[in-house]
Computed example of a mutant assay.
Amino acid sequence: MTNPVYLALDLPQLDAAKALAERVKSHVGGFKLGLEFFCAHGHHGVHEIAHVGLPIFLDLKLHDIPNTVAGAMQSIHVLEPAIVTIHASGGRAMMEDAKAAAADSCKVVAVTMLTSLDERDLLRTGVSGSAHDQVMRLAELAEAAGLDGIVCSGHEVAGVRKQWKDGFFVVPGLRPAGKATGDQKRVVTPRQARDDGASVLVIGRPISRADDPELAAREIEATL
């Protein structure tokens, strides 16, 4: 992968999302389409962004019983995503069925712990221990289930890389040095995440809400 940056295109208007994709396509490696985009624009919206000519990452975070998740994976074959997310907390059987149902060309990666959460949030949901420990536990489970990799914050990616040497690691919640963190709690810079072993860097607002998105994307690309 020449450019590991995937731009999060979670915009409410399809025309605006496609215009932004066209504007920055020379400075990113692909586009991440999440629940907000998928619920608003469906298969048609995904096809429209795919026409820009870069890989598509469907960040759907599927989490249900194994049969339902497998069915959902089969229903998106026609979209030809390069990457799809599921939740590691759905358990090993769900992850195994998701991977078995995915297209051969699609990487299935498991979300371990959202970057909007910290250890206090974990404790409130009944999970004790550190964020790092929780991510490592779920990464081990995802590897055992035969997935391609996981989604984790930049704080954990170096540790996971040591444990899972040939894994594919997606790191969201990234912020260039000096930028506001917003609702993200566990952030690092794109360069730090890449140096620590990230395969894909998901970046949204620092590009999509910049006064000049093309310049912002180009500046981030230059740091890598």
Rank of each mutant, 00 (worst) to 15 (best):
P66I: 04
S208R: 11
L141Y: 01
L60G: 02
L7R: 01
L20T: 09
L122I: 11
E119G: 02
D133M: 08
E36L: 08
I65N: 10
D10V: 09
A88P: 01
L174E: 05
M94P: 09
S26M: 06
D183H: 12
V28I: 04
A110D: 10
A139T: 14
A139P: 00
D196A: 13
A101V: 01
E156K: 08
C39N: 11
N67Q: 10
M113E: 14
I83S: 00
E214S: 13
H51K: 15
A145G: 10
P55Y: 09
A72M: 13
Q134A: 14
E140R: 14
I203Y: 03
E140Q: 15
E214F: 01
A8R: 12
R92E: 14
E22T: 04
A82R: 10
A21C: 10
E156R: 08
T125C: 11
A103K: 02
C106H: 02
A17R: 10
A50C: 03
S26G: 14
P213F: 03
A88M: 14
A217D: 08
E143H: 10
A50D: 06
L9I: 01
K162W: 04
A145N: 06
L58P: 06
T115L: 05
L138M: 15
V84L: 08
L20W: 05
P66E: 10
L174D: 06
V188T: 15
T125P: 00
E80C: 08
H77L: 07
H51M: 15
L215H: 12
G178S: 09
Y6L: 14
D211E: 14
A72H: 06
H44F: 14
G90Q: 12
S26T: 10
A19C: 08
V69T: 08
H77D: 00
